[in-house]
Amino acid sequence: MNQGNVVIRTRDLVKRYGSFVAVDRLNLEIYEGETFGLLGPNGAGKTTTILMLLGLTEPSEGSVQVVGLDPTRDPLGVKKVVGYLPDRVGFYEDLTGKENLLYTAALNGIPRKQAEERVNELLERVGLAEVADRKAGGYSRGMLQRLGLADALVKKPRIVILDEPTLGIDPEGVRQMLQFITQLSKEERVTVLLASHLLHQVQQVCDRVGIFVRGKIVALGCVEELSSQLFKDEPYVLEVRAQPTTEELIRNLKGITGVDAVEQAGDTLLLHCMSDARGEVAKVIYQSGTSLLHLAVRGRSLDEIYRRYFLTAEEQTHRRAG
């Protein structure tokens, strides 16, 4: 689904600050129109990578290409087509939200009249039309973040880079923000690069995810791919909650082919099996006349994937250090 043109490509990208390696031989390809999630803990080098993509920081080694341009050589060409929402985005507090966006438009050389139209339309879209003429100093964190998104879109970018766009905003704000991002990608075919440490949000909106630990991509692909890679040789653990949990039910469950063991933990049953036996399990429970409350494969969420990759990367570095 994402084999379009490559719009962002890095080759053996390295960034050092003194002896500290922030980005370590990063190879990354992002295709036109996809939503790519750069997922990693704080301090993994996400922001540094973004700054190099924008030409705001020079790489120590390696090369970057954004829409075929080298950001170090032609930063203006790159900045013309890339919209950027920095983490902890700020605005001029004594200007109104609208004036702030108009300033961005002026910096992009958009003529005043066109800029007015574009800004009004964007403010409408991010739901800030009503407060457009209020000073940005009075905006809440969520409003600022939405204004930041509008700000990144003023120049009609081909690529939007969002650095922790949902940080510090309430759940409703997060929902809205993710909805905007999905809309952007689906309706306007804008390539989105989303850097975050919040897995569930990335999982919701991104086509592909790169897990980024200590300046390296340790895993890359869509969420299902990552999960099958990681859990290839592992038995499934199914979580089952049924009402009531009877001895007979447990016996029946044990009888299912493929189920090795049944463990009882509180009111939850843990079924160890070699394959995904959810269908069989549901059938057995239904036939035994008890009601099924919960049935899930344990530990196959992005959380688990992320934690495992993170751990393996940590182990490797420890081993190397040792």
Binding site: L56, L76, K79, V82, Y84, P86, G90, T104, L107
Partner: peptide, 8 residues
């Protein structure tokens, strides 16, 4: 950082 990411 927002201003510097504009094409100027």
């Amino acid at each position: 950082s927002r201003i510097l990411s504009q094409p100027i």
